[in-house]
């Protein structure tokens, strides 16, 4: 399978990328769950945002979504 070969060839790039993106997502998910006060929106909405939109989702959450005092 050619696609698998591409993935294998590029593991030094793909693996850290995957780990970092997961890390970012998990950090955002933990924050969403632990601080249930948002400037707007609700828990489910923010969970979807940070999980579905790689990189941008967590950044938008930390910039605009989290509660004022968190």
């Amino acid at each position: 399978m050619k696609n698998a070969q591409v993935l294998l060839d590029n593991w030094p790039l793909l693996l850290p990328l995957l780990i970092l993106e997961l890390g970012l997502m998990i950090a955002a998910v933990i924050h969403v769950l632990r601080h249930p006060h948002y400037r707007f929106g609700n828990k489910v909405m923010w969970l979807i945002v940070v999980i579905v939109f790689e990189i941008i989702g967590p950044v938008i959450y930390f910039a605009f979504g989290r509660g004022k005092n968190e």
Binding site: P16, L17, L20, L24, A27
Partner: peptide, 17 residues
């Protein structure tokens, strides 16, 4: 800062990829 650090490292990796 932690969030931005992760984001900018991700960019760093994505460019050559």
């Amino acid at each position: 800062l932690p969030i931005m650090l992760i984001v900018f490292v991700i960019f760093g990796i994505m460019n050559p990829l």
